[in-house]
Amino acid sequence: MTGNTSPRADDGSTAAENADAALTTRPDGGSVTASGNRRWSRSGRAFSTLLGRPIVAGVVAVVTAFLTVPVLVAFVSSFAESGSGVLPTGFVTFDHWRKVLGFGEYGVRKNAIPGLTYSLLIATGGMVLNVVIGVPVAYALARYDFYARDWVNTFAILPLVPGLILGIAFVQTYPQHGRSALGLLAGYCLLKSPYMVLTVQSSFQSMDLVRLEESARSLGASWPRTFLTVVVPHAKRGIIAGAIITWTLAAAEFNFTHMVASGSPDPFAMFLYDNIANNALYLQSAAAVSVYFLIVAGAIISLQLLGKRGFSTAHQ
């Protein structure tokens, strides 16, 4: 980030103006033609120099608004009584939240808490499994140079099979267990593993792994012990960040869940789907979506506490 390095500002144009003022005579006795001078000072008057920055800043402002405004509106209007008109009106009511979560007497709506808990437990399981499979492969890729390393790398960091296809194939392949919690867990783990591998890998890449490993080995630790008690603890932050990211993404994974989930209890993604699709009420959808926003906000805050800039796998 730019931080406190001074922006490159307008030194170009001011230099050109100075040249304008000095004009025709040069210290070495030569002379500068007016047209040549204009050629050099052109940058001061170029369209992009005058307006480039405001235009780009404007684009950034529009993009930021496009990405954030709907989220804020959805969150705010989930507490409103009426969503018609330009802005929601009638604050503050918790009716929609209560209805969506299924508290109290609201007819056929079922309590959403079991589904939510179920999903979060599966996401946690997927996260733990991701640590077990992701950290070793990330270490192998960061530390060693081996045959087909590039291929393994591409496989590990790119989700090659889309969730939808994986879901269809999964149910057909494992008819008994495909729809169970175990099936969801394995699917989430595989689909989200690239985020774990990338995060941990970039954390490993910032360490001097060879020296670390050799110091531990020369002090008498066996290789498994070196890996488990020296290397892994050093990458603690990366692993935790990867765990938060994979957990959050798995908590609301929809494409795979839609194909695999069998109901009872309904995973969280299906709860969102039921509250968004077709004939769902606008403000109740807002409340349902807001539940997930709260989860994401919690994840982002935890990532910030770890020193990560939001949902990024990159290491700083």
Binding site: V73, A252, F254, I276, V289, F311
Partner: peptide, 22 residues
């Protein structure tokens, strides 16, 4: 930075809802 990074966490159905919000 937060605005351009958090939508990565949003599943497609939530994005669809956010478009209807707009």
């Amino acid at each position: 930075v937060a605005a351009v990074s958090f939508p990565i966490a949003l599943p497609g159905i939530v994005v669809a809802y956010l478009i209807t919000v707009l």
